[in-house]
Amino acid sequence: MPTITFAQSSGATTEITVAEGTSLMRAAVTNSVDGIVGECGGQGMCATCHVYVRPEFTDQLPELSDDEDEMLDCTTAERTDSSRLGCQIKMSPALMNIVVDVPADQV
């Protein structure tokens, strides 16, 4: 099963193993990972599931939709080239051992 590693700005990391098809946001919220809120339940409407995906995994990510793109302009922490919405990333074999950095602020 795919494993997600959430790295906090403090240096602490949490590793979570989830079923394929689970979104990164849902995995974080279900396991009480600090710093991922997911207010809108994964509709891409709230921008509180912002993560920075480590560069080695970006090629494997689903493409950025227009809706996700505009919502990423609304994140509290600064948007970078690595920014994605956790609710739009569903776990797949391609993302087996993904590592993401959790921003310091979500709201």
Binding site: E39, C40, G41, Q43, M45, C46, C74, T76, Q106
Partner: peptide, 19 residues
């Protein structure tokens, strides 16, 4: 300290007019 409030609701009914 900033914390998420529930003023816009949450989940599938998260306020569509928030922005």
């Amino acid at each position: 300290p900033k914390k998420p409030h529930l003023g816009f609701g949450g989940g599938v009914h998260f306020c569509a007019g928030t922005w």
